[in-house]
Design a binder for these strands. Structure first.
Length: 280
DNA sequence: CAGGTCTCCTGCTAGC
DNA sequence: TGCTAGCAGGAGACCT
């Protein structure tokens, strides 16, 4: 499940291959990727556009074209692969970009959860990016920002960390890791967090995501940034998918619960509900 | 407005 | 061995 570090890894890999290249044609084999947008219109608009740059906003990839942004969200299992143009189209390859009549950039998504949007450059404020919260490294992300956003949130902090309208990029794996390093129980209500705990969350969000990017993302389940490219961050995980195993800090058994419908892993000893938080 | 539940989708796996 | 129910989950729709 690509979260921010995985998307960033994909972005870097794609940029090396695609910067300055031209999209000669577009084939859409599964219309739901573009949801209710007019696919025929999109094909006409995108033909002949050059890929000037590829940016990232939260978990969104943002292909900067001459006149448009192509926004792409990989959701659970979306990935891009880069092939010779004439190579056989395989199952689950849903969108094909003809690059310079020579290569084929293919969007593959087994579960078809991923989404794309083509938006005019001056209409980004009407796109799904408009509602996104702060990037983890934004200087405006501080205790008072979180305090304000969390003040009416009675939901468990685990759930609130996944809210992309507050801070972008955190998904299920890294939310658990951030809370473990911050010594905060995942059930604790967001609005009840102390200033110290909020600061730990900010620091550890940056630390966890930085480290994961450095290691090329976490390869878990079916995530790979590109065919043949796998990250190493799974070796850094303290709690995720370690239920029943020993806590690496205190040796207590890691617990798995469901919080907000998500598998949630934590150490019952390091992350006691009534502790004031700390930093590992 | 806050929050709970359902939905999308397919592959994998536990259990019989 | 083969079948099936259940699970995995990001984010938006819909309802209370």
């Amino acid at each position: 499940m690509p979260e921010l570090p995985e998307v960033e890894t994909v972005r870097r890999a794609l940029l090396l291959k695609l910067k300055g290249r031209k999209i000669k044609d577009l084939t859409v084999l599964h219309n739901n990727v573009f949801q209710d947008q007019d696919v025929e219109k999109i094909k006409k608009q995108i033909k002949g556009q050059s890929i000037i740059d590829i940016l990232r906003r939260g978990k969104w990839l943002e292909f900067v074209l001459d006149d448009y942004y192509l926004l792409s969200h990989l959701r659970m299992e979306g990935k891009y692969i880069y092939r010779k143009l004439d190579e056989k189209v395989e199952k689950h390859q849903l969108v094909l970009f003809n690059i310079d009549d020579e290569f084929s950039l293919r969007y593959r998504d087994v579960r078809k959860f991923g989404k794309m949007y083509l938006v005019k450059k001056n209409e980004l404020d009407k796109s799904p990016l408009a509602k996104l919260g702060l990037e983890p490294w934004d200087e405006n992300l501080n205790i008072s920002y979180l305090k304000d956003k969390y003040k009416n949130k009675s939901l468990p902090i685990k759930t609130v960390l996944l809210d992309q309208e507050i801070v972008v990029g955190i998904g299920n794996i890294y939310a658990d890791e951030i809370l473990f390093l911050s010594k905060i129980n995942p059930y604790k209500k967001a609005k009840e967090l102390s200033d110290e705990e909020l600061l730990h969350i900010i620091d550890n969000t940056r630390k966890v995501l930085d480290k994961a990017i450095e290691d090329g993302g976490t390869t878990i389940r079916s995530y790979t940034s590109e065919e043949g490219v796998t990250g190493n961050n799974q070796n850094n995980l303290y709690v995720h998918q370690r239920q029943g195993e020993d806590c690496l800090i205190c040796k207590a058994k890691i617990i798995k619960d469901r919080i907000g419908g998500r598998g949630t892993y934590y150490c019952p000893k390091c992350q006691k509900l009534n502790d004031s938080g700390g930093n590992i």
